[in-house]
Design a binder for these strands. Sequence first.
DNA 1: GGGTATGGATAGGATAACTATCCGACAGTG
DNA 2: CACTGTCGGATAGTTATCCTATCCATACCC
Lengths: 222, 222
Amino acid sequence: MRIGELSRRTGVPVPTIKYYLREGLLPPGELSSPNQASYDDRHVHRLKLVRALVDVGELSIAAAKDVLAAIDSPGLPVHSMLGRAQRAVITSRAGTDDESRESARREVADLFDRHGWAIKEHSTSRQALVELLATLRSLGHDDFIDLLDDYAAAAATLATAEIDWISQDTTSDVMVERAIVGTVLGDSLMITLRRLAQEHESATRFLDGSPQPDRVSGPDGP
Amino acid sequence: MRIGELSRRTGVPVPTIKYYLREGLLPPGELSSPNQASYDDRHVHRLKLVRALVDVGELSIAAAKDVLAAIDSPGLPVHSMLGRAQRAVITSRAGTDDESRESARREVADLFDRHGWAIKEHSTSRQALVELLATLRSLGHDDFIDLLDDYAAAAATLATAEIDWISQDTTSDVMVERAIVGTVLGDSLMITLRRLAQEHESATRFLDGSPQPDRVSGPDGP
DNA sequence: GGGTATGGATAGGATAACTATCCGACAGTG
DNA sequence: CACTGTCGGATAGTTATCCTATCCATACCC
C-alpha cells in the first residue's frame, strides 16, 4: 500500500506520517523505484502504536522515538526494556531545597525497607519520589505521606500482575511490546481508574447522605 | 516583602513570577504606591503550589490557573472541587473507530457494575477509559484488559484512603487544597511508585535467578 | 497522455512557557 | 538630597514542540 492508504487506515494525515518518517518513528517503506515506496500491515500497526504512545500515553515525539527504538533492537532482555520504557516516560525535575529533600530521602529508604524493595540510590524514579515527598512537605502536606504505604502496596500488586502478563507470551517481540504498552498505557489506565474511583467515592461520601445546594455540580458538571 | 525576596524564597526567577502574575496564577501584591507592591507568606505558599502543580503535577499553566481558581472560590463543596481538579488534569482525546469503541463501552459498563461504581455515562474520565480500552484492543493487546479488575480494585482502595485524608481536616480551605494536592500530586505519586514496584519486581524476576549477558542494564542503566 | 497521487525536501505556522528589555518611579545609603 | 540599585508594569523576543503547507519531479491509473 502507499502512503495514502496508510493514512486512510489509521486516520493519521499524510503530512503527519511524513513527519513521523522523517523523525524515524516509522521505518521507511520499501522503495520500488527511487520515488515510490510501499508500506504494509506492520507499518499500520506501528503507526497505531505511535499514536497510542503519543495521544494516550502522552509521550513526546522524542520519547516515543526512544521506546520504539528499543522495540527495534532485537533480543534486548525484558528488564532493560522496561527500564528504557520507563526512562522515556519520566521527566526529571528538581525544585526543592536540600533540607526537606534530606528527610524525604530517609522516608523513601524506610518505605523501601518496609516493602522489601531493592532500588538503587540513583534510580531516576527513586529521585522523583524523593522530590515528590519533599514537595509535599514544603507545601505543608506532610501527612499525605501517611498514605504512602497504601499506595506502595497497591503499586506492588499491580506490578506483579503486569509482569505476569508480560511474561505470558514468551516470544521476545511480543514481550517487548507488552512491556512498553503496559508501562505507558498502564500509567494512563491507573490514573484514569483512580479518578473514577475518586468520583464514585466522593459522590457516595459527600452527596448521597447530604444533598448539596442547587447549582452544584459533580466532577463533570459545568 | 517585594518581588525580589519572593523570588529568593521560592527559587522562581523574577520574570517568571511576573509572568504568573500576568496570567492570574498568583494574586497581585498589595500596592503601597502606584508602582510598589508588597507580597506576604500567602504569596510564597501559593507560588510553591503553582510550581508543584506545574513541575511535579505536569499541569499546563492554563490548567493550573483553573484549579487555583477553584481554591479561590470560597465555600465550594468538596465534590465539585474534586471534579474541577480532575477536569484540569484530563486531556481528552479520541482516535479509535466506532466498532472497537462500542465493545469497549460495554466492558467499561461491566467493570463499573462489578465494582459498584455509579459513574455517569458522559463522565470525562469514563470516556477516557473507553478510549483507552479501545486503543489497547486496536493494538491487539485486548488481554491486558484482564488486569482491569486488579487496577480498579487498587484504585478503589486508594480513593477511599485519599478521601479519608481530605476529610480529616474539616476546615473548608484546607479540604480544598488537599483535594487538589491529592488529585494532582497523587497521580504523580502513584505513577512513580508503580514504576518503582515494576523495577523491583522485574529485577527479582528477570535478573536474580538468571544473570543476564554482560553489558545489560537495568531500568537506570546506560 | 493528462489529471491525480507520491516521495522527499524545505519552509511556514500555532501554541506554550518563559525570558529580555525598557522605562519611569521609588527606596535605602550615606 | 543625590545616587545607585531595585521595582512594577508593559511589550517584545526566544525557544521548543508538533505539526502543516508548498514545491517539484516523478509515477500511477484510466
